Simulated scan of single mutants.
Amino acid sequence: MDIGPAIRRTRKSVGLTQGEVAALAGVSRQAVVLLEQGGGRMSTLAKVGPHIGFRIIGLANGDNPAAQVQAARRQRKMTQQGVASRAGISVPTVRAVESGTASMAALTSVLAVLAPKAREAMLVRAHWQERRDVRFTPPEVVEWVLASFGPIALDPAGDPRSFVPAERVLTEADDGLATRWSGRLAFVNPPFSDLTRWIGRCCDAWDRQEVEMIVGLFPARTETTTFRERVFGVADVLLMPRRLSFYDEHRTKMFPAPFALMVCIWGADRDRVLDFAGRTGALVLWASDAAKAPSTGHDGETGSFPKA
């Protein structure tokens, strides 16, 4: 298995740049570049892999490559000495691979012995390729939104097959980017392939007072100019504590999203936001009071993060 190109293909399939993956994983961009060249350390792969949905198939079951290697060796009734001899590496190096502390080169050598036909998983890529935007909001998220904020008046990026019970649904043919929004509450789970324009559209709808409240579910792309200049400090931002499993066009549950998610909320009073945060376990980054409508302004309190 040529693991470097496999990592690169998986990363590109979810529409993330090397810099974006680095930011999500808490590593340097150069570390990601090195991984995609087949170098670096398994410890870096352990940080990067969950954010791009990287999995090795054709090896053995396990939560990570280190566990898979150990399981595969035992299934094949091989000793660490036997693997080391055939891979041309030392026994301590095999132990390091099985503990996840070895180099990527050592992992490649071991894979060549244990699973020469191993490859990266295709299923996550099939669900998360950039051009596939039929991705319905999980029913539990819809229930949390309804419980905390009330009935949904508008779904501007909607689909009649989704779980969102909006009074008005704008489909792709209706073009929610161009059509004027209306109603008390708009819930937005947009096509992630056009994320920047949809977040900008939410900002425009709020600025123009087209709706009273907006709840948007987005990838946590906090490094973008749109987020930094138009969302942060204006909307309350909730950082979700875990990856969500969306649903496909057949209402079949998909693999968990290989990236972090955030919920951006414009116009809701603090009690409603806190209620939603309590239901989801999300961390709240509060908007500045100056950005809120007069009826929803509050004094600062412990735990808030106002815009500087």
Rank of each mutant, 00 (worst) to 15 (best):
1 M>T: 10
2 D>T: 10
6 A>H: 03
9 R>L: 12
10 T>Y: 02
11 R>M: 12
12 K>G: 04
14 V>F: 05
15 G>D: 06
16 L>G: 05
18 Q>Y: 02
20 E>I: 10
25 A>F: 05
26 G>Q: 02
27 V>D: 07
30 Q>R: 15
31 A>M: 13
32 V>P: 01
33 V>Y: 09
33 V>T: 14
37 Q>R: 13
38 G>P: 01
39 G>R: 13
41 R>Q: 11
45 L>A: 03
48 V>W: 02
50 P>F: 00
55 R>D: 12
56 I>F: 04
61 N>V: 10
71 A>T: 14
76 R>C: 00
79 T>N: 00
85 S>L: 12
86 R>P: 00
88 G>F: 04
91 V>S: 02
92 P>V: 00
98 E>P: 08
100 G>F: 00
103 S>F: 00
105 A>G: 09
107 L>Y: 00
112 A>P: 06
112 A>K: 15
112 A>R: 15
112 A>E: 13
117 K>T: 12
120 E>W: 13
121 A>D: 15
131 R>S: 13
136 F>H: 11
137 T>K: 03
141 V>Q: 09
142 V>W: 01
146 L>Q: 15
148 S>V: 11
149 F>V: 10
150 G>M: 13
153 A>N: 15
153 A>M: 07
154 L>F: 01
155 D>M: 07
155 D>N: 15
157 A>V: 11
163 F>I: 12
163 F>V: 08
165 P>M: 07
167 E>L: 12
167 E>D: 14
168 R>I: 14
175 D>R: 13
181 W>H: 04
182 S>Y: 06
184 R>I: 05
189 N>A: 07
191 P>Y: 01
191 P>F: 03
192 F>R: 02
194 D>P: 00
196 T>Y: 02
198 W>H: 11
202 C>G: 04
202 C>T: 07
204 D>P: 02
207 D>Y: 07
209 Q>T: 09
209 Q>M: 07
213 M>S: 04
213 M>W: 06
215 V>A: 05
216 G>F: 06
217 L>W: 12
218 F>G: 01
221 R>V: 05
221 R>N: 07
222 T>E: 11
223 E>M: 08
224 T>E: 09
225 T>P: 03
233 G>K: 06
239 L>F: 14
239 L>D: 02
243 R>F: 08
244 L>V: 11
244 L>Q: 11
247 Y>F: 15
250 H>C: 07
252 T>H: 12
255 F>P: 10
256 P>N: 01
262 M>E: 10
264 C>P: 06
269 D>G: 05
273 V>R: 08
276 F>N: 04
277 A>Q: 05
279 R>W: 07
283 L>F: 15
287 A>R: 14
288 S>I: 09
289 D>M: 05
297 G>A: 14
301 E>A: 13
302 T>L: 13
304 S>F: 04
305 F>L: 13
306 P>G: 01
308 A>C: 08
